[in-house]
Amino acid sequence: MFDRICVPTDGSDAAAAAFDHVLAIAADHGATVHVLHVADTTRDSVTRIGRDVVDVLETEGESIVEAAAARAAERGVDAETAVEQGGVPETVVDYADRTDADLVAMSTRGRQGVERLVGSTTERVVRRSPVPVLALRPGDEAVPYPYEDVLVPTDGSPAATAALDRALPVAERAGAAVHVLSVVDTGGIGVGDHVDVDVLSEYADDAVAAGVERAEAAGLEAVGAVEVASSPARGILSYVDDPGVDLVTMGTHGRTGVGRYLLGSVAERTLRSAPVPVLTVPVPDEE
């Protein structure tokens, strides 16, 4: 399912922890990891050592990717490396496209610390990437792989369908249960809106039932749930903690997440705070 995984790294502890998780996935799938370090051109990096003019960021980057390749070799995973200059999000997306990667996997934390602000590097990659992005947020404990429980939020939209399409083979390979969740968003309902929560819940029930039916048809254990929350992201995050899941797979478009270019979309809000990996699946804009 995954053959070529693009792994951006800045050499930080968080990136190293994410890389361990990616190596487990790559070893399971027999995939090649394409390790990329971006020498950010917004920083002055050229210096003189003796008679030689040296780009210290590129030199540092070579050391970082070589170390990552050595770790991959220890796990029996094939690795290719690259150091490129440019803006980080744009370069990551361009490199993933040129290497025909079918997954980008990266930490949501880097040398700058926890990226909680809108516009973080990971979020910018998610908005631009034409392939799925696995966002890994380092925690106190190592993220388990293979996954045991995979959560797919749904609103019945094409984006949710695309996420389920991606989640089912992931769950099947890992032997994981699939949790199909729809969140009834009450946060946008005003006093004069005359919106019946029961009607919204019925729609959510239908979306969940369709997802569960597809998961069961694939021979997977499936759990359906409808939650009422003040926002979709809050409902998703609450479900992640109880009953607990190992991976969230979600589309970057949907009725409740207007688009991957809209700051503050449901996917972005979820990946900022989720304590487990979030796999975002892009869907082309509808004309």
Rank of each mutant, 00 (worst) to 15 (best):
L181S: 02
D205A: 11
V208P: 00
G188L: 14
G175I: 13
P232R: 11
R234V: 05
M250T: 00
D185C: 10
E202D: 14
L247S: 11
R166M: 13
A233Y: 13
V226C: 11
D185K: 09
L247K: 12
A204W: 03
I189Y: 09
A174V: 04
A162Q: 09
G219R: 09
A174G: 02
V212D: 02
D242V: 06
G244D: 12
A171N: 06
T256K: 14
D241E: 15
A174E: 08
A222V: 12
G235F: 06
Y239I: 11
T252A: 06
D198E: 15
H253G: 05
S231G: 12
D241V: 01
R255A: 08
A163I: 03
A167Q: 08
D246V: 00
I189E: 11
A209N: 05
A218D: 15
L247P: 11
A176G: 10
D193G: 03
G235D: 13
V195N: 00
G211H: 06
D165T: 14
E213N: 07
V248G: 02
S231I: 10
A210Q: 12
A174Q: 05
R234Q: 14
A207K: 03
E227W: 08
A174Y: 02
V195P: 08
D206M: 00
L181Q: 07
E227R: 15
A210D: 14
L200I: 03
P169H: 06
S231P: 05
A210E: 15
G224F: 04
H194I: 08
L220M: 07
L181N: 02
D185S: 08
G211P: 09
L220W: 10
D206Y: 05
L181R: 03
I236G: 11
D196I: 00
T256R: 15
D193L: 05
G254E: 06
H194C: 06
G244M: 12
A207L: 01
S238P: 01
R255Q: 03
D185N: 15
A177G: 15
V223L: 02
R166Y: 12
V248I: 14
D185G: 05
S230T: 14
V208H: 01
V199R: 05
T256S: 15
A207T: 13
A218H: 07
S182C: 00
E216T: 14
P232Q: 10
R234S: 14
L164A: 10
E202Y: 06
I189M: 02
V178H: 07
